[in-house]
Write a protein that binds this DNA or RNA. Sequence first.
DNA 1: TTTT
DNA 2: TTTT
Lengths: 120, 120, 120, 120
Amino acid sequence: MINQVTLVGRLTKDPEVKYTADGRPFLNMTIAVNRPYRNQQGVAETDFIYCTVWNKSAENTAKYCQKGSLVGVLGTIQTRNYEDKEGKKIYVTEVSVHTVRFMDKKRSDSSELLPILTIP
Amino acid sequence: MINQVTLVGRLTKDPEVKYTADGRPFLNMTIAVNRPYRNQQGVAETDFIYCTVWNKSAENTAKYCQKGSLVGVLGTIQTRNYEDKEGKKIYVTEVSVHTVRFMDKKRSDSSELLPILTIP
Amino acid sequence: MINQVTLVGRLTKDPEVKYTADGRPFLNMTIAVNRPYRNQQGVAETDFIYCTVWNKSAENTAKYCQKGSLVGVLGTIQTRNYEDKEGKKIYVTEVSVHTVRFMDKKRSDSSELLPILTIP
Amino acid sequence: MINQVTLVGRLTKDPEVKYTADGRPFLNMTIAVNRPYRNQQGVAETDFIYCTVWNKSAENTAKYCQKGSLVGVLGTIQTRNYEDKEGKKIYVTEVSVHTVRFMDKKRSDSSELLPILTIP
DNA sequence: TTTT
DNA sequence: TTTT
């Protein structure tokens, strides 16, 4: 079982961190990813992909990104469903993001420049 | 701009090819992908991911797969919207699939064993 | 900057954990990945991809896999170089693996069935 | 069997198309991908990943990119071996690229803005 | 043999 | 509800 998503695109809005009831940071954002080809009518299209970012990555995204920022996003597709006010079942598909790369930043000011262990 | 999805999971139903108005084959399927970890309540969860397969891959999937078949799927996330009967805008997120790997087949009977050019 | 690799293939040997000087577990393995198409001569080819697995994933791989096991592998391509005995520079490209999925195991006995937090 | 690589990084040199004996265009390039974290010594590292691009993508890469261009690369890891002048077997691991995205170009002048069919 |  |  494999479930892996890689996106590079731009934030449609300024991001904002929220917290779960038990205090975990998260952030909802939509990534605009332009398709590489025009459609049959010659129109350049864009996918607007709904993402939830978790934990430290959520905090860093809020700190380093704004509307229009170019980001790389690594995550998984998740599905869930709920009932709306009329009792109708709504199915939601979204990307749960574990890693965000800040792609218009230079390397030196990236928020994720933290120590890791070396390969021996 | 990058938009790439890799899934390995099982078909929830027997697949069935359909054709667009202008004759292009396609196939809708849902892939069940078990999550690798249990949730906080100790429950093993599954994502049910809605996919559309195109062209020759659609025909091969119908030919070689059935409910329960293990497949690898390469594609992109696409979003679209339409208005339901009450005029409410519905937003849909799905995976548009360009390649399917048949993973419970042995190599010798794979439907995709066609010639390609060699690396010089 | 994005660097992401997804492989599904089989171990060419029984895996064996080793430890770095400072005690970190790691494991070297080669994954055989059959190409989906035959080459111009009609021959079915296979790529033998050298991987290094780290930490807990290394220990689990040794515990749950053997020669021939089907695994999914998530990681990054890494390059390094060293000088051989004759002082010639050797360039090495390998996959540094952070996650291994055990794909011939049923879900119930997967080694990675550990608790995670739920999505709110 | 799955073999998928996604990279975003910069060309280390001006690219140049070559042709196989039977006339197929190809192009060798090295992509510099900066690692997101510093190593234990506090040094920011980079992987230099050797790639071969094929066909139309090779021609477009030569046309639209130069040393330092930011590209997204989709492909597979391939391995091969040959004997050097002293009869020693040399093992090579490289990325065979099927798609290149030109990431410092604006959408309007991308070389890959060609028609595709629409989703019905 | 290495890019910003 | 959409970005360059």
